[in-house]
Amino acid sequence: MKLVEEVTEDVTIVEAYGRLDSTTATEFGDRLISLVQGGRRSLVVDLKNIAYISSAGFRALLIANRATAEKQGKLALCGVIGEVKRLFDIGNFTDEFLICPTQAEGIGRLRQ
């Protein structure tokens, strides 16, 4: 898995590439947690380049979401499309996260 990070003034954008499964979820989750603990409390996670997400990936996202909330921050997801969108639907996760269509909209929602 590859993670590309872009830090703007107050929002950090994390673009994830590849598969989010039991072999990559720990690395992915740990990175998000370390960003939050490092003071980056507004995260936009872009999943448009994720081809597959398993229960391990959802668990990592849930934990990162909780960690952000505990720091009075916010985590927004974007690029939830195609197969990943279907998996969010069948896992009943659509209402668990703040999901925005694009990075720009995610940033906008976090700045509100």
């Binding site: 398993s54 229960s55 391990a56 959802f58 668990r59 849930l62 934990i63 909780r66 998996l87 069948i90 896992g91």
Partner: peptide, 15 residues
């Protein structure tokens, strides 16, 4: 899901 192995495993079964 976040705190127990059982919850994590059952999420996989549910999906």
């Amino acid at each position: 899901i976040m705190e127990t192995d059982s919850g994590y495993r059952r999420l996989a079964g549910f999906m």
